[in-house]
Structures are given as C-alpha cells and as structure tokens.
Design a protein around this nucleic acid. Structure first.
Length: 584
RNA sequence: GCGCCCGUAGCUCAGUUGGAUAGAGUGCAGGCCUCCGAAGCCUGAGGUCACAGGUUCGAUUCCUGUCGGGCGCGCCA
C-alpha cells in the first residue's frame, strides 16, 4: 500500500515538474508515512512542505496543486490537507480489510520482506572465551545476536550464525593451569592457589574428572610446581608474573602431550557447557570457528607475511608492528611479539580475511562496547590487505550492569563471582530472559536487576504479549465447546466497523513495515514494542466486545480478525526467540 | 588528556532518513468480572526532552560548546 501511494505521488511530482512549477532537477522524493493518529487518516505525505522552498510557494497552496495532479486510485477514499501542509490519505474501506486475507493466506510468511534480496550475511556473536560458563553479561549479546539473525532472515537475507572460539592464547593457558593445580589438590598436594587463577567451582569439577580418569598420571610435587616461580601479589609479588611462571612449569613438567591433554579437557568441557547453554537459550550457531585452527593451518602466518610484503610493517624492540595509523587507527599495533608468538590481533586479521574468502556479502560482528577501540585496527588491516572493509559492520552492545536490589554486582569470570546465564534462565525462564534483554536498544546502557527479574517475573511484558496469544486460542476452544465453527468469509469483513477493530486493522497493516525498518536499523527491539502495542489493542478489544456472538457474519469477521492478530503475534515472537503458548 | 556510547515522567525505557497536542511500562489515586481467561481493561495526576547557542517553514531528532554518567586508550583476549 505504501509503495502504491509513493508511486502515485511520484507521478504527481513528475506532472508538476512538467508544468514548470519548479526545476526538473529538484531531487525531492515523496515520503509516505503511517500516521500516528487516526484523525490524520491512514498515511501522510509531507511533500508539499519539502517543496515549499524550491517552489517558493506556501506549502498549503502547493498541497492543493499536488492533490490536483494526483492520479486516481481504487484504494484511496479521500485526501485532505492539514496542519502546516500535510497531505493526509484515507484508504478505502475494502483495502483496509485486505490485510486479514493476506495474513490468513501467508501465515508464518506474513511480514517477510525481500529487502535482503537473498544476500548472504554472517552474524558473529557471543564469542566469549571458553574459560568458564556464560554469565548474564553474555546474555545480552546472545539474545541480541539471535534476534537480529532471525530478523534479517525475515527481511530476506541468508544468515549464518557463528561463534568464534578463542581456544588459543594466555587466558586458556591460565585455565588449563588452574585445572591442573586443583587436580594436584585432589592428589594431596598443599599450596596456595594463585590469585590470578580461575577460581570458579567448574574448575574444581573439571579437575575432579581429570583426577578420576587419570589418578596419578599428571601428579608432580608442589615444590617442583612452584620452583623458581616469582611471588604472588598478596605476598608483595606480581600476580601476572606468578601465574606465567606456573604456566611455564606446567608445560615443562607435563610435557607437550600431557599439557595438551589437560588443556583440551578444560577447553572441551567448558565449550560443551557453552553449547548446551546457548541451545537451551534458543540460540543456535551454524559454525563454531576455532582460533587455534587458524594458527595451525598457517593462515595467520600467511596474513602477517602478506602485510609484510606489502610494506605495511616494521620491526621495533624485537616485535613486528603493523602501520595501522596509515589507515586511520590512532596507533600502530603489534602482530608478532618479541618472543615470536603472534598476537590475538594477528589471528583476528586472518579470521576476518577467512570470513570474506568464504564468500559472505556482509559481515556483522556483535561486540561488547569495551571492544570499540578495536574496530579501527581490524578495518585498517582489512583495507591494507585489499579486502572490502566496508562489508564489515560492527555492532556494539553496551554493558548490562547487574544489580541485586541496590547492590551492584561485579562480573568476573576469574574470581568466580558471577551469575551464570543458566541460573538466570532457571530463575526467570528462557522467554522472559530473551525478551527482557532485547527490549532495550543495543547501544543503550542497561540495568538488569535480578531481584526485579526474578521476584516479579509476572510483570515482565513478555507475559502480556503471550497472554494475548493464549487468549485467542482460548476463544477458539470456547467456540468449539459451543459446537460452533469459524468460517473465514472475506465478504463478512465489511462488518468490522468499530474503533477497536479499525485500530487493529491499522496496526496489522504496519507489521511488514516494522520488520523492514527494524532490519535496516538492526533493531529487533522495534518488534518487541510493536508486539506490545498490538497486544494492548487486542486486550482492549477483548474487554470491550464479545467475539462469539449470534450474528454469524460479525462472529466470523471478528474471529478472522483475532486469528490474524494471533498469527502476527506468533510471527513477531518467533523473531525474538520467544514461544507463543496456547495456554498459560 | 584523547576517542566511542548515553542523558526524555519518581523509577525503567520507546519516540520510524527532522513533522501535527512528546508516548508506554512501573509506581501512585480511583473505577470495571451473573458476560469468550482480571497474567486483563478504563480514568486521573506526573515533563524546562541535561544546559546554552546554531542550522530552517519546523529540532527530542542534525551541528558546536558546557555539565553529568558509562566504556576504551596492553607485546591481555
């Protein structure tokens, strides 16, 4: 409908240009918008106001000329000039009902759009280090990424979801060493656990498994383990040097094979847990991409060499640097450390190159806001390597600060002080958690109060929307109990006249547009707000009128309407990853 | 110090490439079940859109500055 109206105004505009009202190169395009108040009709066009200046005429006078030039249309009932020069369009009654037929025919496909034109998009999100279970801080990225992916699918993109597994690097070494030390505990060794080690219970669990399956295989005396290790922080030493010393000793005492066995057990256990967790959260990945595989296949080395050959690197203090400042970054970055190991950044350069080689038209990375300084250097490297950096979009998700009532909680995987995503899910449920996370726009800071989410979960807006869905199902159960049947009769829709029915028709007709604007802006929260409004209008209608009435035409028409409402609620909730129950 | 994000009702937040009288939830005050589910509906009070300039027919929206909050500025990941 919107496209149809836009076309009408384009024709009117062409006509006025021919009439010489203003020059032919005026590059104003007609904009048709849904009105927010029924008094202003169904759609409004502000063309007259936009043209007022180039045409040097009063917008209201101009509006009359535009209307005069407007071709006739079977869908348009009347047009009016209002306010400073808005042209309000009232759609013909029969055209307003058409949306119900569309919804009932297209069902789950209603609202799908083709703006994506089948382009392939990769969405990479969460990608938390596999050094511990996912916590509530990761939940926001998880819910946002998953909702964005299905939103883009609805908009006609081919979407692939990926989790980048940081299974190489120092953090993983710290985890492996932490597990091994707990294992030595089980072997009867006694020592102070490093302050910088991973302290969570899950580390103990992995160590217990290691001990159960390999009783004494990795046992070494504490004196050997702590030999030549610098003092820990509480004893006046440095916690980083302390843990690095322990890692080094672990690698030497266990040997390559033994160390790798401990390392892999820790990695695989944590990763398996993360996979179970995301799945239970309704978040599914097409690909789990290993950072280690990049190093092992030599792709990282290749990327670094390419940068070197192209002359974008230099050596300083024994390290190899990338001249990212030449590409807009604020300082140059290290690719290879003075000890010969490549940096995380080097892996990431290779990773993004690899993504493009896999043929995606568009790459979307969802990162925590703390990584924003990282964006320019990745783009810099892609540009330097001749890759199309503009295919990459980085969406930053602001932190959710976690509160328990008035107390702000710290979220540190290292200290073991965190609330896991699993705990949250068990407390408030998957649906409420998914909805709550995605209700805020991603770049907005967010306070997540556990007390509120847990103790008053019934007040969560998700139930309000699900309740509307369940109520429709309930009406149809009631219909059956009274031995009546619903027949969708397009002709009967004529009887939908009252303000409640008209409001719902208007709302339903906006759905496709909401999906498109939400997808273009990467803002799934727009769907959530739309659904709340739709549910609100449905509840209001429900309280004001009976659906199962004597008059057969009215009954069938109202049932067709609420069936359509339920379908749209279901489609929208599906995008957000929230279930649509038939009873609650 | 520099960079990014944010500042809208008591609280938590929407506000569609700038548009008509700035909206929800929650909290507060009151009303609605003999009637398809009251996890619902209706009414009311509640605002200097942080502040000051600028751009224009028109600014919560765009630009500049000030104030306030968050984050980043590693040979960590």
């Amino acid at each position: 409908m919107k496209a149809h109206l836009t076309h009408l105004f384009e024709q009117a505009l062409e006509q006025l240009k021919k009439d010489g009202l203003f020059s032919a190169d005026t590059d104003v395009l007609p904009q048709i918008n849904h009105t927010r108040d029924a008094r202003f009709g169904d759609f409004a066009c502000n063309l007259a106001m936009q043209l007022a200046k180039p045409a040097k005429q009063n917008p209201r006078v101009l509006a009359e000329k535009i209307i005069a030039a407007l071709p006739a249309s079977e869908h348009v009932d009347k047009v009016e000039i209002a306010g400073p020069g808005f042209i309000n369009i009232f759609v013909h009654k029969a055209s307003r009902f058409a949306v119900i037929n569309q919804i009932l025919e297209q069902k789950a496909d209603f609202g799908r759009s083709q703006i994506g034109q089948g382009q392939s998009v990769q969405v990479e999100f969460i990608s938390a280090n596999p050094t511990g279970p996912l916590h509530v801080g990761h939940g926001r990225g998880a819910a946002y990424g998953a909702a964005l992916a299905s939103l883009l699918r609805s908009a006609g993109f081919q979407v692939s979801c990926e989790y980048y597994v940081n299974d190489a690097g120092r953090q993983m070494d710290i985890l492996a060493t932490s597990v091994w030390l707990r294992y030595l505990d089980f072997c009867g060794e006694s020592f102070a656990f490093p302050s910088n080690g991973y302290q969570g219970d899950y580390v103990q669990d992995i160590a217990a498994t290691l001990h159960r399956e390999n009783a004494g295989l990795y046992h070494h005396a504490a004196t050997a383990v702590f030999a030549d290790v610098p003092a820990d922080a509480p004893d006046g030493g440095d916690k980083e040097l302390h843990i690095d010393g322990l890692i080094k000793n672990a690698q030497q005492l266990l040997g390559d094979k033994g160390y790798r066995a401990v390392f892999d057990l820790a990695l695989n256990t944590v990763l398996a847990d993360i996979k179970r967790d995301t799945q239970a959260f309704g978040v599914n990945f097409d690909q789990w991409f290993s950072e280690r595989s990049l190093t092992e296949s030599g792709i990282v080395e290749k990327s670094v060499n390419t940068l070197k050959e192209k002359g974008f690197t230099y050596e300083q203090n024994g390290a190899l640097w990338f001249r990212s400042t030449e590409f807009g970054d604020e300082k140059d970055r290290v690719l290879v450390r003075d000890d010969g190991r490549t940096t995380y950044f080097a892996s990431d350069v290779a990773y993004h190159l690899n993504k493009l080689e896999r043929g995606f038209d568009k790459l979307i990375n969802i990162w925590g806001a703390d990584h924003h300084g990282y964006v320019p250097r990745v783009r810099a490297a892609m540009t330097a390597l001749g890759a199309e950096a503009d295919k990459l979009t980085v969406l930053l998700v602001q932190f959710a600060s976690l509160w328990r009532g008035k107390e702000k909680l710290q979220m540190s995987t290292r200290s073991g002080e965190f609330v896991t995503l699993r705990e949250l899910r068990k407390e408030v449920g998957k649906d409420a958690a998914r909805f709550f996370y995605v209700l805020r726009k991603s770049e907005q800071h967010m306070d997540f109060d556990l007390e509120l989410a847990k103790s008053r979960s019934n007040d969560n807006p998700v139930y309000y929307i699900q309740y509307a869905h369940a109520r429709v199902s309930s009406v149809f159960r009631q219909l059956q109990a009274r031995n009546l049947v619903w027949l969708h009769d397009p002709a009967a829709l004529e009887s939908l006249n009252n303000e409640y029915e008209q409001a719902l028709l208007t709302r339903l007709s906006k759905y496709g547009n909401v999906v498109e604007t939400a997808a273009k802006a990467y803002e799934p929260h727009q769907i959530a707000y739309y659904l709340r409004e739709l549910a609100n209008e449905f509840h209001t209608f429900y309280n004001a009128h009976q659906f199962i009435v004597e008059d057969e035409d009215v009954r069938n028409a109202r049932l067709s309407l609420i069936e359509a409402v339920q379908q749209v609620l279901r489609n929208g909730l599906a995008i957000l990853g929230v279930s649509a129950p038939d009873e609650m």
